[in-house]
Design a protein around this nucleic acid. Structure first.
Length: 263
DNA sequence: AAACTCGTCAACCGCACGCAG
DNA sequence: ACTGCGTGCGGTTGACGAGTT
């Protein structure tokens, strides 16, 4: 007999999560921990499957998530780890506290892969791509280098620098570079705001206390072993939820506050 | 202004794995 | 050893916004 589906999909909601759903999930997990993902949606009053809840929590709602773009140092480390580990994203993510495997995978597929190709490196083998002399050859790199500028860049980059990116970006203009740096500044401002919100609560230690787990970061973060937050901690949890509310502009959900489990 | 293209990333799918019975 | 279940993982999809024509 075939394997049972992870959930009964009939009547379940799919697609992007609403703020209300997020709120419900966060409140439920903070109050009850996670003992069985399959039960979470039902107990939390969500029309989602357990898998979807797990994914949402791990990739987006987890309080210890690090937000914002990857730094160049992080990118370089990802590349080095990928050369050793291959597409084992969860293993790679284990080296980046606050980053998820999904995030790293996405970043790899959308950014790093292209940069490596521009550098003349095969993103799979991490070795220089052999130039195929035949004009008929149409590998991806060749296609991406179709533009004169693309070719120019790949020529001028010394790929044996081993992942030390050229000072110029793929477009090769200082103007573009300035733009990127500007955006980074904006991002940093945003991150600072995040730090203000998240940072005042020592979530790392709270998590460790709650989970009684090892001190090393696990990308497969789970509250499975956690007991319910004790009464003494509920105030800081409330504080956190309050901050989350303001952070995510959950103005429209104040009514939920009245129904929050631990109030 | 509309149509189209492209890049990004959240979310889904299905298989693999580990564990308990 | 086998089976069933819950979870983890990696590949893939599709919605959406930004940029371009």
């Amino acid at each position: 007999m075939g394997r049972q589906p992870c959930c009964d999909k009939v009547g379940l909601k799919r697609g992007p999560w609403t703020i209300e759903e997020d709120h419900k999930l966060i409140n439920f997990i903070l109050n009850n921990g996670i003992h069985c993902w399959r039960m979470v949606p039902r107990l939390a009053g969500l029309l989602r499957c357990g898998k979807s809840c797990r994914l949402r929590w791990i990739n987006y709602l987890r309080p210890d998530l690090k937000r914002g773009g990857f730094t160049e140092a992080e990118e370089n480390e990802i590349i080095q780890l990928h050369s050793r580990l291959g597409n084992r994203w969860s293993k790679i993510a284990a080296h980046f506290p606050g980053r998820t495997d999904n995030e790293i995978k996405n970043h790899w597929n959308t950014r790093i892969k292209k940069r490596l190709k521009l550098l003349g490196l095969d993103p799979v083998t991490h070795k220089p791509i052999e130039k195929k002399g035949n004009s008929g050859d149409k590998n991806e790199t060749a296609l991406e280098s179709n533009s004169p500028k693309g070719r120019e860049d790949s020529m001028e980059v010394n790929f044996m620098d081993n992942y030390n990116y050229s000072k110029k970006d793929s477009l090769g203009t200082e103007e573009k570079r300035d733009k990127v740096e500007l955006n980074l500044e904006e991002t940093n401002d945003l991150l600072n705001n995040y730090d203000i919100c998240w940072g005042s609560l020592d979530f790392g230690s709270w998590m460790n206390q709650e989970t009684n787990t090892n001190t090393t970061y696990s990308p497969s973060f789970s509250l499975e072993n956690s007991s319910n937050p004790s009464v003494g901690e509920s105030s800081s949890l409330q504080e956190w939820v309050g901050r989350v509310d303001s952070l995510l502009s959950w103005d429209g959900f104040s009514y939920l506050e009245q129904n929050i489990f631990f109030l």
